Amino acid sequence: MAVEIDTVLVPVDGTDEAERAVEYAVAVARRYDASIHILHIIDDSVARAIQRDEIDAEAVADEHRAFMATVHETTRGPEGKVEATQSTVAGFSAQRLSQHPVSVVLDAAEEIEADLIVVPRESMREAPGAMLGKVAQYVLSYASQPVLSV
């Protein structure tokens, strides 16, 4: 039975592990002639700081643009270009108590009809925004799509 993958979802949180997950997602996308979707998940502390004007939202957007510039470099190569799209979402919400990084990843996977999720397994640095390594096991357990944990 042949595996068919058209869309690979990669949730990222700004860590080196998330960058590595993108590299794996690009490799899979190349193999299956698929596209990738980068889901930037903003940590609760960052989202609250933006709301309180303690962090400039444009600075966060600049970080995402810089990350995507790196992604676009990764997607180019002698094997051809991999199509990459992106979106951003808060990992937690005071208005929606059920919103947390796991539900955000699973909901995004359903929304974009992802065929595979590539998620960073461990976050080696304890820094604001480093949250995905903590939720990888739950994504592995509850996703209806196959999950590659790297």
Rank of each mutant, 00 (worst) to 15 (best):
A2S: 14
I5C: 02
V10R: 09
P11R: 04
V12W: 04
D13R: 02
D13Q: 05
D13A: 03
G14T: 07
T15G: 04
A18V: 06
R20P: 05
A21H: 06
V22E: 04
V22C: 00
A25I: 06
A29M: 02
Y32G: 07
D33L: 05
A34P: 06
A34Y: 05
I36M: 06
H37D: 10
L39P: 03
I42M: 00
D44W: 04
E58Y: 08
A59H: 12
A59D: 15
A61W: 00
H64I: 13
R65E: 09
F67K: 07
F67H: 09
M68P: 06
M68A: 05
A69M: 09
H72W: 05
H72M: 10
T75C: 08
T85R: 11
S87P: 04
T88I: 12
T88C: 09
T88H: 03
T88R: 13
A90W: 09
F92W: 15
S93C: 08
A94S: 14
V102C: 02
V104N: 08
V105H: 02
L106G: 10
D107W: 04
D107S: 14
A108Y: 06
E110V: 08
I112W: 02
E113F: 04
D115E: 00
R121F: 03
R121P: 01
R121S: 11
E122P: 07
S123V: 00
S123Y: 06
M124E: 14
M124S: 13
A127H: 09
G129N: 05
G133V: 02
Q137H: 14
S141Y: 10
Q145W: 01
Q145P: 07
V147F: 01
V147S: 04
V150P: 08
